[in-house]
Amino acid sequence: MFKAIKTFWQAIRQLSGDDAYERYLTHHAQHHSADGDPLSKKAFFKKWQDEKWQGVKRCC
């Protein structure tokens, strides 16, 4: 039961982008650790939102 709630909460966090920065840090550590420090949370979040809204993202 507790596990199910936790999974559900994770899904909500991921769907909304609440954990986007954590996932970015993981990705950065795995693939780009040689390219320098990761972006700050503030800089990442701005970039993430700007990218999210390029192109057709909502329908009728």
């Binding site: 909500i12 966090r13 982008g17 609440d18 986007a20 920065y21 949370k41 503030k42 990442f44 979040f45």
Partner: peptide
């Protein structure tokens, strides 16, 4: 709020 007060706290 998301940009300045509590950065990235979407939920």
């Amino acid at each position: 709020y998301m940009r300045y007060v509590r950065v990235g706290q979407v939920l």
